Simulated assay, not measured.
Amino acid sequence: MTRPRPRLAAAAVTAAAAALVLTACSSSGSSASGDGQIGFVTAKGTNISTAAAGHRQDAPDIGGNTLEGAPAKLSDYRGKVVVVNVWGSWCGPCRSEADDLQRIWEKYQGQGVQFLGINTRDPEISNAVRFEQEKGVTFPSIYDPAGAQLLKFPKGSLNPQSIPTTLVIDRDGRLAARAVGGQTDDALETMLQPVLAEQQR
């Protein structure tokens, strides 16, 4: 008799998400798995990696319900530059960068830019909602407590490497930049502006 497999799949998701948390809340600029590959550039003295337009991989169509219960997915924003921030309410660097993220969101949201959070490893959604209220965050976040959406990013790409991680997705839905660890508004603009300046194919 064949045993049911759903538990195995769930266990795999949990284990992979737990591995991500092992590097969680690190604000260091340590190298990540994709940085040494052709087409990836890591600026010296920073933890920001970029991919030239001809070397970008498609971002997965992450999706789910937001903290407010509304459906959302990355492909809803095709044609815009999307800033994806992976965070948890329990994460110190996430709390530190929240004000900077909100400032940049307010500055660029009328310029063809969308911010989208992925809240992960928060077993109680109320913790994440309280975090947003306390920090004044107004852009939507997908609730992903088990990290299932994070596992959709292809290995060897500009995929999330720790919590927090911030990604910039170009207008064609491709992975253009990644910053590992907490970010300032200056660093966020350094990632965002070159992608925003590109023309849509």
Score class of each variant (00 low, 15 high):
residue 113 V to Y: 05
residue 102 Q to F: 01
residue 186 D to K: 10
residue 64 G to Q: 03
residue 166 T to Q: 00
residue 82 V to E: 06
residue 154 P to Y: 02
residue 142 I to P: 07
residue 22 L to E: 15
residue 4 P to R: 13
residue 134 E to D: 10
residue 41 V to N: 14
residue 55 H to P: 01
residue 183 Q to L: 15
residue 168 V to M: 10
residue 118 I to Q: 03
residue 188 L to E: 06
residue 159 N to S: 11
residue 38 I to V: 12
residue 191 M to S: 04
residue 168 V to R: 11
residue 72 A to R: 11
residue 125 I to E: 13
residue 44 K to D: 15
residue 80 K to Q: 14
residue 172 D to L: 01
residue 184 T to M: 03
residue 21 V to Q: 13
residue 49 S to Q: 07
residue 61 D to T: 12
residue 180 V to H: 13
residue 179 A to G: 15
residue 23 T to G: 14
residue 103 R to Q: 11
residue 17 A to H: 04
residue 76 D to V: 00
residue 185 D to N: 12
residue 125 I to W: 03
residue 45 G to K: 02
residue 24 A to D: 08
residue 47 N to I: 00
residue 57 Q to L: 14
residue 10 A to E: 15
residue 176 A to T: 05
residue 184 T to H: 04
residue 161 Q to H: 06
residue 139 F to Q: 06
residue 47 N to R: 08
residue 164 P to A: 02
residue 102 Q to C: 07
residue 5 R to I: 15
residue 39 G to E: 01
residue 78 R to K: 12
residue 82 V to A: 08
residue 25 C to Y: 15
residue 145 P to L: 02
residue 98 A to Y: 05
residue 46 T to D: 03
residue 60 P to W: 05
residue 141 S to A: 13
residue 113 V to N: 04
residue 35 D to R: 01
residue 6 P to E: 10
residue 4 P to V: 11
residue 22 L to S: 12
residue 58 D to M: 09
residue 15 A to C: 08
residue 66 T to W: 08
residue 73 K to Q: 14
residue 149 Q to S: 11
residue 145 P to G: 05
residue 105 W to F: 14
residue 36 G to K: 01
residue 79 G to H: 08
residue 4 P to T: 12
residue 39 G to P: 01
residue 118 I to P: 03
residue 118 I to R: 02
residue 159 N to C: 02
residue 113 V to W: 05
residue 55 H to K: 11
residue 108 Y to C: 00
residue 99 D to Q: 10
residue 31 S to E: 12
residue 74 L to N: 13
residue 27 S to V: 06
residue 103 R to N: 08
residue 159 N to A: 14
residue 190 T to G: 02
residue 26 S to T: 14
residue 201 R to Y: 07
residue 175 L to C: 11
residue 74 L to S: 13
residue 100 D to I: 00
residue 117 G to M: 07
residue 104 I to D: 00
residue 76 D to S: 10
residue 168 V to H: 09
residue 40 F to L: 04
residue 32 A to E: 08
residue 102 Q to T: 06
residue 121 R to C: 00
residue 81 V to G: 09
residue 97 E to L: 07
residue 22 L to T: 14
residue 108 Y to D: 01
residue 37 Q to E: 09
residue 60 P to T: 10
residue 45 G to P: 01
residue 162 S to D: 10
residue 34 G to R: 07
residue 61 D to G: 09
residue 116 L to D: 04
residue 26 S to M: 08
residue 2 T to L: 15
residue 140 P to A: 08
residue 72 A to M: 07
residue 85 N to T: 08
residue 188 L to A: 05
residue 179 A to H: 15
residue 62 I to Y: 05
residue 13 V to C: 08
residue 65 N to A: 12
residue 74 L to H: 11
residue 4 P to S: 11
residue 105 W to R: 07
residue 75 S to N: 07
residue 184 T to F: 05
residue 124 E to M: 07
residue 159 N to G: 03
residue 78 R to A: 10
residue 56 R to N: 02
residue 19 A to M: 15
residue 82 V to G: 12
residue 39 G to T: 05
residue 173 G to F: 06
residue 164 P to W: 00
residue 179 A to K: 13
residue 41 V to T: 13
residue 116 L to C: 09
residue 51 A to Y: 02
residue 64 G to K: 03
residue 167 L to C: 05
residue 2 T to G: 10
residue 37 Q to D: 10
residue 34 G to F: 15
residue 189 E to R: 09
residue 124 E to K: 13
residue 153 F to S: 10
residue 126 S to F: 04
residue 156 G to N: 09
residue 63 G to L: 01
